[in-house]
Nucleic acid binder design. Structure first.
Length: 264
DNA sequence: ATGGTAGAAGGTCTA
């Protein structure tokens, strides 16, 4: 048996509720990591999602950001918010233990890394500082030797192969060397980036296409949504892929889901 | 050179 864990930046869970429910019904993932829910915890569409068979834990915020974890299995939240700055008001991190429920337990986190544009500037500084906090917390988690999936919208294109126009994007916060160096730092701690581990040479593998300028029909995309696995999770990795279906739907998010399958 | 799109909020910001 396997457990399937997906991540999807839905760009407003309320605006995307029909798309999300349809996709839960088709794809039937066991766990879904959501980003940019853009609502508070008490306005999250909990009843509809529970009716679809999922428990939901949220770390919401009005208007911007907000993350959530949906799970068919029981789950226990470990933390809301990334440690390292108690004054940070932005809701970009939630972490939970998914119960084994007959299989093996797995720890997951849903993260929404700051975009960081314009760069250079204050927003870019916040992005890099947030990445430094993530590196610190990811190292702490690694020492606990659990099967762990750090998934979400990293707002980083790891290499030029993950960008439709590398030259045009080289000065953007998603592609700048400081962002990429910190992403590599995460990997050097001991994490495995699931998609490239299984598809090292696949081209034009994107998870995001801008709403503007016909980016989707022209396939002008970026790969910025990632699933990072601790060694104990990487040992269980069986499959990973991008599900482009939802990006082609009516009223689509500008991101599409990416998922991993782990031995259960 | 600009605007092109989308979402939430609300008379603009974020992406």
């Amino acid at each position: 048996m396997t457990i399937r864990i997906a991540t999807w930046n839905v760009n407003s869970v309320k605006a995307r509720l029909p798309n999300l429910l349809a996709w839960l019904g088709e794809a039937a993932p066991d766990v879904v990591l959501l980003q940019e829910i853009k609502c508070t915890d008490d306005s999250f569409p909990r009843m509809e999602i529970e009716a679809a068979g999922y428990r939901a834990e949220t770390h919401g915020q009005k208007t911007y950001n907000g993350v959530a974890i949906l799970s068919r299995r029981p789950l226990a939240v470990r933390r809301r918010g990334l440690p390292g700055d108690d004054d940070d008001p932005q809701a970009r991190y939630i972490e939970a233990d998914i119960q084994g429920d007959g299989g093996r337990p797995v720890r997951v986190a849903s993260l929404y890394l700051p975009n960081g544009n314009p760069a250079p500037g204050e927003k870019y500084d916040y992005k890099l500082a947030w990445m430094d906090r993530l590196i610190g917390h990811a190292a702490t988690l690694l020492a606990q030797e659990t099967a762990l999936v750090l998934g979400g919208d990293y707002n980083v294109c790891p290499t030029d192969a993950d960008v439709y126009d590398p030259k045009g994007w080289q000065a953007d916060a998603l592609c700048r060397p400081e962002s990429r160096a910190r992403f590599r730092h995460l990997l050097h701690l001991g994490y495995t980036e699931a998609f490239r581990a299984l598809h090292p040479d696949r081209e034009r593998a994107y998870t995001f296409w801008d709403y503007q300028a016909g980016a989707w029909p022209r396939d002008l995309g970026l790969r910025i949504d990632h699933l990072l696995l601790s060694p104990q999770a990487a040992d269980r990795l069986r499959a990973c892929d991008i599900d482009k279906g939802p990006r082609g739907a009516e009223k689509a998010s500008d991101h599409t889901p990416i998922w991993v399958e782990l031995d259960d």
